[in-house]
Design a protein around this nucleic acid. Structure first.
Lengths: 329, 329
DNA sequence: GTGAAAGCGCTAACAT
DNA sequence: ATGTTAGCGCTTTCAC
């Protein structure tokens, strides 16, 4: 592969001029530009990003941290990030951390190493203090999950309000024994959704029964099914459940079906995230939708603004309760 | 952020020595090494990959091309690629082409530009001739979908044999009106699976009815549902369908349910890919499993071997028919 | 309007 | 065992 000097030689100009043509500098004569462009074609030349990046000390690469590729929740957000970034001359590198600190470190180092310009973290398991250190002299944005102390700008939804809205919906349908299938409460969103759950109970004068709250290890289908099995051992069974993830709700739905109960007649179910499968289950699943694509574009725009030296503020996005068959009355 | 020279100065050595320490060269005295390591700590130094990569003219970054993030089919393969790559000192960049030639070009250029070392393409819509051009002087491997003319090494399964196996299973259950929900036959895998479908019909003496073959635009749920609607208008309805993707099968299942037919009693259904959700549907879905994770590690190992200058051969992996509720008799 | 030359941060060949 | 030096490919200041 030819380099800039060979092109310069071929065109009978200096490498500086070739560089000017590449960067569309306005000072180049039309004639020179044509000579250079011809040489570029002839030699099939492609400028090396590596050289350019080293010189400019930027890589135009953005890192997107997610715990794993398997959760469909992230796909639309990623689409938003990708579209916005590409449109603004950045590429994104999707980084699966597997909640593995070592792996996470690799990605942090890429930023320190100048191999990437900034990070959008959607990983709830991220090492917050390390991320904050990094944020001291690098562009960082959080998406969905965020820093409670607000030292890193984020885009997210009001999880407590969303959970409250779900509960209100179920309570209005007449349910008074509503289970919560929550993820590990080390995650901020889990704590927030639980808060919304509890606030609704309180406001509607329903008792809080701790045995109706099940905390899962992860968001796999199996965990949702496991929650239902656990609840079935109670003396007084719940008649509805709010799962903080569609994947959990789908696993729960499966188990409820297996047990011969009818949804929504015998048991009502609500998920969270509005993943595409949630509309394919039988019955279809009531869930909370976040404006995922828009969250993605917003996060990307915040990051790129940071890279341009601007200050950015955190943003709360709207959410929406989507009522489907699993909670019809 | 400090550079290698400042570290050298701080440690009272030359930058070459610092480089030696960084690269664990065996010729450095223990004493010198300690001095250097201390200086590195003091200055909080991180070597710049950019400088290193430029010098070594490699980026240790691998591109993985997929048409879109939304298809869960790819996740396990990607996990395999990622694990193997990271273990061998490479990072992967997940590239969504959206079947968009412009986007695709961006990624090809990254390889030409030395921003990435090689490509694993899982995109059936990839521009094969451009990819072949690139393969002339760059490391390329295909996964799942491949080059019919075998100019680019691939890892894949025997699609025709898999389709044949599915059909044999359905025929043995007594079905003689079996529909095929196929994707666009511009894709090699679609042509191969159709071939298996037709071969089975022929070998078991069943007539080929063209109206029982529905070609979809994409693999969305809706297309699967649409296929069922189309079949329902026929005078003689099929009693079973083989969908070349679980997503299509799940959409079809939904529509069959909506129409009040029972699966598998009234209608049998088989998918392809064994995505995790295929075991969560009601009834669970019979499908064909590919050794996805292993396909990923294999593809990555082939690519890295290429980068090391070795010749590699294409590999056919095994597949397995997983019989679940949707085809019980 | 264009060229010469320095330098981004690193590594490797060569010299000591 | 360590230092000196050149150069990977590019951009940009400074001359002209």
């Amino acid at each position: 592969m030819a380099n800039i000097h060979e092109v310069a030689k071929q065109a009978g100009v200096s490498s500086a001029t070739v560089s000017r043509v590449l960067n569309e500098a306005p000072t180049v004569t039309e004639k020179t530009r044509q000579k250079v462009e011809q040489a570029i074609k002839q030699l099939n030349y492609e400028p090396s990003m590596l050289g350019r990046n080293l010189r400019n000390s930027e890589s135009r690469l953005l890192l997107v941290l997610i715990p794993n590729f398997s959760n469909p929740y992230y796909t639309e957000i990623i689409n938003g990030i990708e579209d916005y970034s590409v449109e603004h001359g950045y590429n994104i590198l999707l980084c699966e951390t597997d909640s593995n600190p070592k792996r996470e470190n690799t990605f942090f180092n890429m930023v320190k190493n100048k191999l990437a310009d900034g990070i959008i973290s959607m990983d709830p398991t991220v090492n917050m203090s390390k991320l904050q250190d990094l944020a001291l002299d690098h562009a960082i944005v959080m998406c969905s999950e965020y820093d409670e102390y607000e030292r890193i700008p984020y885009v997210a939804i009001d999880n407590e309000a969303a959970a409250y809205k779900v509960m209100k919906h179920l309570i209005r349908l007449g349910h008074d024994q509503i289970a919560l299938i929550n993820s590990d409460e080390k995650f901020l969103y889990a704590r927030q959704r639980r808060k919304g759950y509890e606030r609704a109970l309180e406001e509607f004068g329903l008792p809080l029964r701790n045995e109706l709250i099940y905390n899962t290890q992860n968001l796999d289908f199996q965990e949702g099914a496991q929650a239902i099995r656990k609840f079935s051992q109670l003396e007084r069974n719940p008649t509805a459940a709010f799962a903080v993830s569609d994947t959990l709700a789908i696993g729960a739905l499966k188990e409820v079906n297996v047990r011969g109960l009818k949804v929504p007649e015998d048991f009502a179910l609500v998920g969270f995230d509005n993943i595409s499968f949630s509309n394919m289950t039988n019955p279809t699943l009531t869930t909370v939708a976040q404006p995922m694509y828009q969250m993605g574009t917003t996060a990307a725009s915040m990051l790129i603004k940071q890279l341009q030296g601007q200050e950015v503020d955190s943003i709360m996005m709207d959410h929406e309760l989507i009522i489907r068959e699993s909670t019809l009355n």
